[in-house]
């Protein structure tokens, strides 16, 4: 799960990349046509003089290290995990903390959901998503499953979870996936 801040940065960077490509290509074409005020033969002499200055090696290393750190930080932000390990329960305070591995609890709730007819398997975890704390259950259902019944069952499981965890800020998301090949279900309900 990539944070919205990083997504925004990615978009801005993509904008800069796109504009740079268009501008580079267009300026190149202009230069090639011969109508531009640019010199007709490229000359890197000015850059060469800067590179030969005394402060150049130090500055080059400093900026290089900065770029490497920035690049690694940026790349790592794409790999951040959204799973929440610990969930504090009501009653926690300065006197003491009461916490639970929320993902285990949601996993148990997922097991309950998996008992519904038409649900093949289900797993659960607690994660952060766009500023919300979300109890997420991923369920694989049969293609012939009764969606209404599964929704009802999800409501029940969600209510049980809410009662067990007692956290009002927790949101629930049950994401259904359909198994590719249907397994034979009993037709006599």
């Amino acid at each position: 799960m990539i944070s919205r801040k990083i997504l925004l940065i990615d978009r801005i960077a993509t904008l800069v990349l796109g504009l740079a490509l268009v501008a580079g290509g267009a300026l190149g074409l202009w230069w090639w046509s011969g109508d531009s005020p640019f010199v007709s033969v490229s000359d890197t002499g000015a850059v060469q003089r800067v590179v030969d200055m005394v402060w150049w090696p130090t500055a080059s290393v400093a900026v290089g290290v900065l770029l490497i750190l920035l690049g690694l930080r940026w790349a790592a932000a794409h790999l951040s995990r959204a799973k929440v390990d610990k969930l504090y329960l009501p009653g926690s305070g300065s006197q003491g903390k009461l916490d639970v591995d929320g993902s285990k609890v949601v996993g148990a709730a997922a097991d309950v959901l998996a008992d519904t007819l038409g649900v093949r398997s289900a797993t659960g975890k607690i994660m952060r998503d766009r500023g919300q704390l979300v109890a997420r259950i991923d369920a694989v259902i049969e293609p012939e499953a009764d969606l209404g019944q599964i929704a009802e069952s999800a409501d029940l499981v969600s209510a049980q979870l809410a009662e067990v965890l007692g956290r009002d800020d927790l949101r629930c998301s049950v994401e259904l996936r359909v198994a590719r090949a249907g397994r034979q279900l009993s037709r006599a309900f």
């Binding site: 590179v51 090696p57 080059s60 290393v61 400093a62 290089g64 290290v65």
Partner: peptide, 11 residues
């Protein structure tokens, strides 16, 4: 990161 490596090598 690649640009940074070039900078460090240069220095």
């Amino acid at each position: 990161v690649g640009l940074g490596v070039v900078g460090v090598q240069e220095g």
